[in-house]
């Protein structure tokens, strides 16, 4: 039983990859030979997938015969492009020295714990994307967390729940 569903999962994943490849090819062909086409193609890809997943960028690099470096240079140059799924929130926990010393790890643990609780109560998995980052240049406010671009400083673990809730409320 278990293997069967694993097979089915793999099967649908492969289908997804096949479909994704096909779409990338179509989009790339559509803009072939046109000036500034990489930006247009990335727009089309973002419209299609909601963001630019690494696997899609990889496929595009192969299809267009260009490098990943070029694609990432363009994606990161324009604020418009996203590297993470939309509708999701990005929580960056600073693990720089100052924040680390002021308990960033505890903060991270509390975040993960709160998210598990939220998932258990029906919040979609993947709605919050948590990552550890290096010093974000706000050491004076350590420990710091960046939530969708907004910096929250001097955070104690108890406050984590609140800001997550506020985010959802928006």
């Amino acid at each position: 039983m278990k293997t069967k569903s694993a097979d089915a999962e793999l099967g649908s994943l492969l289908d997804w990859v096949e479909g994704m490849r096909k779409r990338v090819r179509e989009i790339a062909r559509e803009w072939e030979g046109r000036e500034g086409n990489l930006i247009m193609i990335l727009h089309a890809i973002q419209n299609e997938f909601g963001y630019v997943p690494r696997g899609v960028a990889n496929e595009l690099a192969r299809e267009m015969g260009i490098s990943m470096a070029r694609i990432y240079e363009v994606i990161t140059f324009y604020h418009y492009f996203r590297l993470t799924p939309p509708g999701s929130h990005t929580v960056q926990v600073c693990m720089g020295t100052a924040c680390y010393l002021k308990g960033a790890e505890k903060l991270h643990g509390e975040l993960e714990r709160q998210l598990k609780l939220m998932e258990a109560s029906g919040v979609r998995k993947g709605e919050f994307h948590v990552e550890n980052v290096r010093c974000i240049g706000c050491c004076g406010m350590a420990p710091a967390v960046v939530m969708d671009g907004d910096t929250h400083g001097r955070l104690c673990p108890d406050a984590v729940k609140d800001i997550l809730k506020r985010k959802r409320g928006k």
């Binding site: 490098s67 990943m68 470096a69 070029r70 990432y72 240079e73 990161t76 140059f77």
Partner: peptide, 8 residues
């Protein structure tokens, strides 16, 4: 193309 300049 192993290296790149990201962001601005």
């Amino acid at each position: 193309w192993a290296l790149s300049i990201l962001h601005r």
